[in-house]
Design a protein around this nucleic acid. Structure first.
Length: 847
RNA sequence: GCCGGGAUGGCGGAAUUGGCAGACGCGCUGGACUUAGGAUCCAGUGCCGCAAGGCGUGCAGGUUCGAGUCCUGUUCCCGGCACCA
């Protein structure tokens, strides 16, 4: 609090953000009901939600920006008479950054709860209008219970299954490493310890069952950025092709073994000159069984592949292969093809085996050149005259626009016909079929961590895998676990947790010690918000029917793939089990840009983190929020500049001081004064006000360029400062002045709520600012009476004329030609063309 | 390599459908008020030029009366994915 200075005039009153914000913070602590969504309402509903931008370890300006957008929208919708649901929840949010980085290991529960309390206090201090009664904390027992319940439902439907999968393993840490934690083949904490690949039994969710629907429904998501839809489409990666079995003639593997390849170009199969296997293909082990030399070469290929994958430039890998000396038979022409193992074939795409057609595939071509394999041509460009076929296309010739040759009974077909007929042929003969593959893989949810929802499964020696009965939920984490960062699953070292009895036979059983990926939490948390206190079910379907789909989801583009695919999957699964009626969780999605400092993403390691606490202490919450919206359009990255936020603080000060000086003694607001009755200065202010309301409102409906609508409010304030002398002279009617100030407070309400509430009170308004309706503009009052029109000669600006806004074209031309500068410019020349864009410009073309 | 986004003053950014390029803010310059100013208010500020005027939206072309905006080619930057068969 600044010292009271009774001698100071009103004129010198300071904008003291700390004082104003503390005052309202105290009041809002008493009354949260203001922001609570109504349980039943005849109003239209609006559900707005933010998703946490990374890193989520500690509150940073990226979060402030994220919430500033959502909060402004929530307040705007509220003031426009919507029943707004704007919840806030917490998951791994609250972990220190170091721990978050190692996949949510080890936070003691008290610590986490304390930290979440801390975060909540910070968010409140920033003035975000959440419905705190809807709070959901995903890492607490109540939420675990429903996660586990869902898992059982997934398991019942065959959508959860267990399989072996490869993981990165550091023998020194004795723990699983994320790809991020592997640096150059070594553990990030032990630079001398090479990372091993281990097979681990893990739980997976069969999201690939929904691949086709997830892909198809992207077309329905018109409120999503095209960018995100494209990313998801590529991620799901549908490709249509054919599976073909190549017979091994009993030379490899058990009798009757075949190699199945996947190809999108079965029409080129007569041009295959070899079979290429992924180094990790199961048959490779068989082939190299008693050939140490060959085995060593294959090991080399595996190593190369893994290294390239880590570095992230598998595309740049030098193509290597090794001939196994074995053969497989092309079922179409019974030709024997050599089997190779190659480092550019991936086991986790398609079948891990391809047919190599060098004449018609870029990679195969390079490979065949390198190892001097034959390059038979089977597709030629389509000839206009069937008599003259081009025998030698430029290689590799990879287009679909061609004709099949040298392919037995399929000769002469177009590629697309050939693909269809040859697939049918394979199916008839029983050695293949047309098929669709997806790049999308099933979702591995097992984590060998302490912190997370325990997977509710048991292992009984007699009954095998047994789900925990629903009545026994939730399975909670044991307390007082000795948590270290190493040594594998922490729960595995707690016998009281692990050892239990089988619900089927009553014999001894072992609990699953893996916990769930936190993406499970975030896949349905927004449903729980709508019905957070439900103890009978995860949520009530009718309540969900009212609130869903989410009207607006706001978050960083880093969630475009994983989170947003998982939650779409979860919604479809819940729909299929009859729990929800909507096919998609989110109607509109907005991806906001990152907050950047000194040209780099804010991060602790770079030491360029700007913390909200610091900003609030120095400039106030309103300034911090307003700046995060003003400095760039919200979908673009934002470069944080301290001098910029000072400018915003200055602006808020200007607003505050203006109203402190001119707050009306009494407010009796009739309609806006009629335009004709006002002197020009007053009319100008009135016009500007209505134009500003229009601009701000339009931006909320449309493209959300809050930077420009804040600029518009600044222009209005500048305009007001420009007429202060007139106000003193009484030229501006008190009624208009009152109208302007009242609307100024309302316009600021979504962006700078603390100040807006203070202004509202200073203006003598009764009742809450948020219960006041959003101002409407009057198009007639927003209209200009006179406009300035640029006059161009041959497209170059030569003069400007002022005409009435509704002047007809003939009048405007007359005025233009009467203009001295125009006269001078066209003197002695011939006018060949006259162009007018009504209300915009005049262009005279002369020669 | 593929997909997506971007490039505008000293800086962040405006210009919503092809129609006055640089709104608004920062910074800078000058002035007023002041014991003082790192408070506040006012004015100026794309570049070259004394001026008239000319030049200006990554680069090179094109379409048009008119292009930051549309088309063709090209360079660089950011994000994502990646030997996808």
């Amino acid at each position: 609090m600044p010292p009271e200075d009774n001698t100071a005039t009103v004129r010198d009153e300071r904008y003291d953000a700390q004082r104003i914000e503390s005052k309202w913070f105290e009041r809002w602590q008493q009354d949260n009901s203001l922001y609570a969504a109504e349980p039943t309402s005849t109003k239209p509903k609006y559900y707005v939600l933010e998703m946490l931008p990374y890193p989520s370890g500690a509150l940073h300006m990226g979060h402030v920006r994220n919430y500033a957008i959502g909060d402004a929208l929530a307040r705007y919708m509220w003031m426009n008479g919507y029943n707004v649901l704007h919840p806030m929840g917490w998951d791994s949010f609250g972990l220190p950054a170091e721990n978050a980085a190692i996949a949510h290991n080890t936070p003691p529960r008290e610590w986490t709860q304390r930290n979440i309390a801390n975060m909540k206090a910070q968010m409140k201090r920033l003035g975000f209008a959440y419905d705190w009664s809807r709070e959901v904390t995903t890492c607490l027992p109540d939420y675990y219970r429903w996660n586990q319940w869902f898992f059982l439902k997934l398991y019942e439907r065959g959508l959860a299954y267990r399989k072996k999968s490869k993981v990165n393993w550091c023998p020194k840490c004795a723990t699983v490493l994320a790809n991020e934690q592997v640096a150059g083949g070594f553990c990030w904490r032990h630079e001398d310890t090479p990372v091993e690949q281990r097979d681990l039994e893990q739980w997976f969710l069969r999201i690939t069952n929904y691949a086709e629907e997830l892909l198809r429904d992207l077309d329905k998501l018109e409120g999503w950025p095209e960018k995100v839809r494209i990313m998801q489409r590529n991620w799901i990666g549908r490709s249509d092709g054919t599976l073909v079995d190549f017979d091994l003639g009993g030379t490899v593997g058990p009798a009757g073994s075949t190699i199945t390849v996947f190809t999108t170009r079965v029409d080129t199969i007569y041009g295959a000159s070899s079979i290429q296997l992924a180094p990790e293909h199961p048959l490779v082990a068989d082939i190299t069984a008693n050939k140490p030399e060959l085995r060593a070469k294959v090991e080399q290929l595996v190593a190369e592949q893994r290294k390239a994958r880590e570095v992230g430039d598998i595309g740049e890998i030098e193509k290597h292969g090794v001939n196994t000396g074995r053969f497989a038979m092309n079922p179409y022409n019974r030709e024997k093809l050599p089997i190779w193992v190659a480092n550019y074939i991936l086991m986790d795409y398609g079948t891990g085996a391809i047919m190599s057609v060098p004449a018609h595939d870029q990679r195969d071509y390079e490979f065949a050149k390198k190892y001097s394999l034959p390059i038979p041509v089977v597709i030629v460009p389509r000839a206009s005259d069937p008599e003259e076929t081009v025998a030698e296309p430029p290689l590799p010739f990879t287009t679909f626009d061609g004709t099949v040759v040298n392919s037995g009974s399929f000769n002469g077909l177009d590629c697309e016909d050939a693909i269809r007929k040859m697939s049918e042929h394979a199916e008839q003969k029983g050695f293949g079929k047309a098929t669709v593959t997806y790049r999308l893989k099933d979702w591995g949810i097992s984590r060998q961590r302490y912190w997370g929802t325990p997977i509710p499964m048991l292992y009984c020696e007699k009954d095998g895998i047994v789900p925990v009965p629903e009545k026994d939920l939730p399975i909670l984490l044991p307390e007082n676990v000795d948590i270290t960062l190493t040594g594998g699953s922490p729960l595995g070292r707690v016998p009281e947790f692990v050892n239990t009895t089988c619900p089927k036979c009553g014999g001894p059983a072992r609990r699953e010690t893996d916990t769930m990926d936190t993406f499970v939490d975030s896949s349905w948390y927004f449903y729980r918000y709508a019905d957070a206190r439900n103890h009978q079910a995860p949520f009530d379907s009718n309540t969900i029917g009212y609130w869903f789909p989410i009207d607006q989801y706001i978050g960083g583009v880093e969630h475009a793939i994983l989170h947003l695919i998982y939650s779409r999957f979860w919604t479809k699964f819940m729909r299929d089990m009859g729990l929800v009626r909507n096919d998609e969780p989110v109607a509109r999605l907005f991806t906001q840009g990152m907050v950047i400092k000194d040209g780099a993403k804010m991060s602790k390691s770079l030491g360029n983190v700007v913390t909200p606490d610091e900003m609030v202490a120095r400039y106030g919450a309103d300034s911090a929020r307003l700046y995060s919206l003003f400095a760039a359009p919200p979908d673009r990255d934002l470069e944080w500049q301290d001098s910029g936020i000072e400018g915003i603080q200055r602006f808020l000060g200007r607003v505050y001081r203006f109203i402190a000086r001119h707050a009306p003694v009494e407010t009796q607001l009739a309609a806006s004064p009629s335009a004709a009755s006002l002197p020009p200065e007053a009319r100008q202010i009135q016009r500007k006000l209505h134009q500003t309301i229009k601009r701000v409102s339009d931006d909320f409906q449309g493209r959300w360029h809050f930077n420009t609508c804040i600029a518009a409010i600044m222009e209005l304030v500048n305009e007001l400062y420009g007429v202060e002398e007139k106000i003193a002279q009484g030229t501006i009617p008190a009624q208009l002045l009152a109208e302007v100030q009242r609307n100024l407070a309302l316009l600021l309400a979504p962006f700078a709520p603390y100040l807006a509430h203070e202004l509202w009170e200073m203006l003598g308004e009764e009742g809450s600012l948020l219960r006041a309706p959003w101002p409407k503009y009057n198009p007639a009052l927003a209209k200009e009476e006179e406009i300035q029109i640029p006059v161009q000669i041959n497209g170059k600006l030569r003069s400007r004329i002022v005409v009435p806004a509704d002047a007809d074209d003939g009048y405007v031309f007359d005025r233009a030609f009467a203009d001295e500068k125009v006269k001078a410019a066209i003197a002695g020349k011939q006018v060949v063309k006259k162009i007018i864009v009504p209300g915009k410009l005049v262009n005279i073309v002369v020669r």
